[in-house]
Design a protein around this nucleic acid. Structure first.
Lengths: 127, 127
DNA sequence: ATTGACGTTGACGTAAACGTCAAGTTATTG
DNA sequence: CAATAACTTGACGTTTACGTCAACGTCAAT
């Protein structure tokens, strides 16, 4: 099985971020690609991590929070208090996300109302 | 009807922000309270605006975006192209919010799975 | 009249998340 | 072998959203 790897610019293109961004994530301890000399070699695991970072960002996590989650997840398999802490953080974040989701629903509803008022005022063409 | 008004620190307490934050929003053109000499006097309309600002922030709008929405909303009653632009912006934002909402649902699902695995590993006590 | 609470305007500082050079290294390809 | 493309580190710049003084005004109460 010929372990497929990626260069930094391949990943940059695929996820539409700059190479600078990817190196920055490494500085922050979010990625640890292997090296071939100087050059960074990204495994599929690194690629998955990058996906997780970007999804984390989309839902409003800071890079620091993402890193804490990674660290906990990596360490959690062994230690019981670690596992409990992990659960605690996840529960807290779940609650925050739920509140955010409620906010979004409210705003979506209001946008819908305002828009239909606007469209009515313009002579009821469909959007 | 004795138009109730608010001081800056009343609003700060109510919404759990600092007075610095409220003055900053004014600098950015998001609030325009009246003055009694130097002092700022906030009407109920100002209070509503502050609520909208904070909700906008919670769903991930920048202060600039919030301001653009305010400006458009204020100007939209008159002008037809303004109204159309307003609708366009709202549609775009609605789509972004919908995507964000989908992301959140995915992550909530994953958190649920991970957590139940963790709990199983700890001997299935309820959370 | 002074103390204290509350308010004001600057001006500068800060953290996060990168962008933007600069200056050098390695690899390959015509 | 020289040019070009892709990569490297390092340092400084930038934007957003405030925090943090400093220095002063004002008003009610003691």
């Amino acid at each position: 099985m010929a372990e497929h790897t990626f260069s930094i610019s391949e990943l940059a293109r695929e996820f539409d971020v700059t190479t600078r961004t990817i190196r920055f994530y490494e500085d922050q301890g979010l990625l640890e690609p292997q090296r071939a000399g100087q050059r960074r070699i990204y495994s599929r695991r690194d690629r998955v991590r990058l996906m997780l970072i970007l999804r984390g960002k989309r839902i409003g996590l800071s890079l620091l929070e993402i890193r804490e989650l990674f660290d906990l997840y990596d360490a959690a398999s062994n230690d019981e208090p670690q596992l409990r802490e992990f659960i605690r953080i996840l529960s807290r974040k779940e609650q925050q996300l739920q509140e955010q989701l409620d906010d979004i629903r409210v705003v979506l509803g209001e946008i819908g109302q305002i828009r239909s008022q606007c469209e009515k005022a313009l002579g009821k063409q469909a959007s």
